[in-house]
């Protein structure tokens, strides 16, 4: 059996570039106004996984992502950069999952693949929780190495990783299987490869094929590797009580839009006299000096 590597990746709204139209007038988030992007840390994870695959003969690298049907683009993007194939976990019964329910679904999907190594980003920019990686590791009874910054060495038995901590670095080694969460300080992901882009640009999920105008039947007969697998809750044999809102111990009690309480603010222009006045005010009140 070949050595399997899984990368967990998420399609996220680009919360780092929130424009003025991102909030609706009633204070709710206008999700449509935010672009869907490849979660940045997951790209670092993909790069580390590609490096690991290069060091192990006959290793296979698969992407798993959970999301709506359009999240298939994350899998294609990964294939353009070197992933062998991918699985899209998509089911309306997954909706409303918190980190615990999400990690349950992902762990069930991973179990069907029997990987030796799992890589994922430390955290996703839409939630910043950093919880899903360790929660999956616990469910699979895998050791975890979080905040990975550099792949030092890997073979079929063990992996050695440099971790980034608040005040330094730590080199750790574990036997496999293991789950690694990759930090944003790790090597950025290689860009798309032109040949791979040509090879996989027609990769589609079954759902996407149904919406295609052009007939892919002949092409997919010749190239079964272009089919991106879609799995729903039944395909990975999940327990319905563990999915979505039912499987999520955390509940959102309320959401508040941000209300700024206006302070009595003194406004100064950039004129020299104004700035001089401000500095003198501050000196006088002993805030500075």
């Amino acid at each position: 059996m070949s050595f399997k590597i899984i990368v967990l990746a998420k399609q996220v709204p680009d919360t780092r570039n929130v424009g003025k139209d991102a909030m609706k007038e009633d204070g709710t988030v206008n999700r449509g106004a935010l672009a869907a992007i490849f979660n940045p840390d997951d790209l670092n994870a993909l790069e580390m996984a590609l490096e690991a695959r290069a060091r192990i003969p006959d290793a296979e690298l698969s992407i798993i992502t959970m999301g709506p049907p359009r999240a298939a683009s994350i899998i294609r993007e990964s294939m353009y950069r070197g992933a062998n194939n991918g699985y899209l976990l998509t089911d309306s019964r997954f909706a409303g999952s918190d980190t615990l329910a999400t990690s349950y679904v992902l762990a069930k999907a991973i179990e069907t693949c029997q990987p030796s190594l799992i890589f994922c980003g430390v955290q996703a920019i839409d939630g910043d929780t950093a919880q899903v990686g360790p929660q999956i590791a616990e469910k699979l009874h895998f050791p975890q190495i979080t905040y990975a910054e550099k792949l030092e060495s890997v073979d079929t038995k063990k992996i050695r990783i440099r971790r980034r901590l608040e005040r330094g670095v730590e080199m750790v080694e574990t036997s496999l299987p293991a789950l690694i969460t990759v930090h944003s300080s790790a090597k950025p992901c290689r860009s798309r490869h032109a040949k791979l882009l040509m090879k996989y640009k027609h990769a589609r999920t079954a759902t996407e094929l149904q919406e295609e105008k052009r007939d892919y039947t002949e092409l997919f007969k010749k190239r079964p590797d272009l089919l991106i697998q879609e799995w729903n809750a039944d395909a990975i044999q999940t327990d319905m009580a563990c999915l979505g809102l039912n499987g999520s111990p955390t509940k959102v009690k309320k959401i508040d839009s941000i209300v700024l309480t206006q302070k009595e603010s003194k406004v100064f222009s950039n004129a020299d006299t104004d700035i001089e006045q401000l500095v003198m005010d501050l000196l006088e009140s002993r805030v500075i000096g």
């Binding site: 009595e264 104004d274 500095v279 000196l283």
Partner: peptide, 27 residues
């Protein structure tokens, strides 16, 4: 600006050196 006690509207790159200058002058 809504939570600031003082707001200076302008180009920060020009304003910061002026603050340094006036601070040195008056401190």
């Amino acid at each position: 600006n809504a939570i600031a006690d003082y707001t200076i509207i302008g180009d920060v790159v020009q304003i910061v050196p002026k603050i340094i200058q006036y601070y040195k002058q008056h401190s």
